[in-house]
Design a protein around this nucleic acid. Structure first.
Lengths: 300, 300
DNA sequence: CAGTGGTCTAGACCACTAG
DNA sequence: TAGTGGTCTAGACCACTGA
């Protein structure tokens, strides 16, 4: 009855009613526990409290969080209020509801939501994923432009990766499914893969402080999506990303890696990914060969 | 008490529980009133009924729909159920809630949501919109590829438009706001505009049957977003769109119009827009010069 | 002031999952 | 069978808008 969880402000009189991202803005101040006022509807406050637990790693990706009734009791509010908070978190892809089982912390390592951030689709045939080839993995100091994007100081420690993604390349027509595929259906994570046309040339920058033990070996060893590894091995969850897309001519350095002539038009995709509190934690610059693939987008 | 509005099926026992897009799927059959079974939660049925009214044009874009209590009385359900239906429709951008005023039919002709589908942003300076220049407007027969996308027969009547969008072009640096702008802040709809660098070359295909009186004059006369005109003048509401994006080399025909050299890398954006019932009603093929602009996308 | 949407509650019954 | 999320209701009070 008198648990230590009575944080919730029962503010029935709001001073000025923050626009709508009140809770999100309050969370930007990552640590300072009681610094931000954050007066907002009860369910927004609950949402903020749950987000904080997620951020603190109390409930790990893939695990289930307490039931709605449980949370309602903890926060001393009704189930409906908790439900509304969870509804929004589910809409934000932070939680996943599963009827009869519970509510789970979303993860990049799931079956269906794999490649949540990769919008490249083949023109023909179904998407069978791509093989990865690591070109480069080194720790260095952040150039000025990278530092600015990652919200750190120029010269700070960063990890730089360079990768190639290769399409399965099954026969000339690229139509239906060919090639017996010795392993089975799942996409060929890394591995030899021998052939396959290069489609994406990636350059990835990560803050060195967050990714201490990241090495080429660990990258090669991990089977599964890279963002899945980030959350499992380094506790860094990618929540949201912004991309800037352009058309660019292949330069002398990139062209041979993508097996195209210099000047060949490539899609340039600059992605900045964020974790909790809108903190940028990855800068990714990709060059896509869109001869047999396209970037799919949905507008609502 | 016994109004003629008692359509709602109070199905407490669902046969097989359609996945989730049950109501949406049911609406695909545009007319056939009672053909589709469409058993689903009450609020989904309400959502479907409201959508049908929108589709029928009972409530026009920009107008307000009846209040929640009113709708609840009509449909003989509680306000909470209507609320949940409206919540989803608002999330789908079909309705807009305004506290204290009511719920309104979303429109492309609004201030903030203008350019809902245009994701092109200038590298520097704030977005001041672009001037339009109509190159071509003619009625013709649909080529095979266009017909396939628009879900009609090859040779059916279509309207073909070709446009140029021009950036404001204020001085060399393109930095802060320059040029006194004699009219004021709003973007320069059409008009002379005299200068301005061409940024987008658009080719638009519309089903002829839906756009009867569309002429170059009416296009030029209309001030405001093109999608706003489509809904005001032709009753065609763009709800959703899918885009396929590639990098392409400028060809001999496009290059001079965009004032670039042949072979210059351009962003190719193919957009298919849908109205109610996922019916495709516009195919738009654009070539974007991304030298000083980029295509912005957000991943969640 | 009356009417609107926004929040919150409490309780009922349902469908799904797993032991 | 017990526990979970999913739906639905009824009613309370609130904040915002406009006459």
């Amino acid at each position: 009855m008198d648990e230590p969880a009575g944080f919730v402000l029962q503010c029935r009189t709001m001073p000025a009613a923050l626009p709508s991202t009140a809770a999100a803005a309050a969370l930007a101040a990552t640590d300072a526990a009681d610094a931000a006022p954050a007066f907002s509807p009860l369910y927004q406050q609950i949402k903020g409290l749950i987000t904080r637990e997620l951020q603190a790693g109390v409930w790990k990706p893939g695990e289930s969080i307490p039931s709605e009734l449980d949370l309602a009791a903890r926060f001393k509010v009704s189930q409906g209020t908790v439900r509304k908070a969870i509804d929004e978190l589910a809409a934000d892809n932070l939680l996943v509801r599963r009827q009869g089982k519970g509510t789970f912390v979303a993860t990049h390592a799931e079956q269906q939501i794999q490649y949540r951030f990769l919008r490249l689709m083949p023109d023909a045939g179904s998407d069978r994923g791509m093989a990865r080839r690591l070109l480069d993995c080194r720790r260095t100091r952040a150039p000025a432009d990278v530092a600015r994007m990652l919200d750190c100081k120029s010269g700070d420690a960063v990890v730089q990766l360079r990768r190639l993604l290769l399409a399965p390349s099954d026969g000339p027509q690229g139509g239906a499914v060919r090639r017996p595929s010795p392993e089975g259906s799942p996409p060929p994570w890394g591995g030899p893969a021998a052939d396959g046309k290069p489609v994406v040339l990636d350059e990835i920058w990560l803050p060195g402080a967050l990714f201490k033990g990241l090495t080429a070996e660990r990258l090669a060893d991990y089977k599964g999506p890279m963002y899945g590894m980030f959350e499992a091995e380094f506790g860094v969850r990618m929540i949201r990303a912004e991309e800037k897309i352009r058309a660019l001519a292949a330069d002398a350095a990139s062209a041979p890696l993508l097996a195209v002539a210099p000047g060949f038009p490539l899609l340039s995709v600059e992605r900045l990914s964020f974790t909790y509190g809108d903190k940028p934690v990855e800068l990714r610059r990709g060059l896509y060969n869109t001869e047999q693939h396209f970037y799919r987008n949905e507008l609502n």
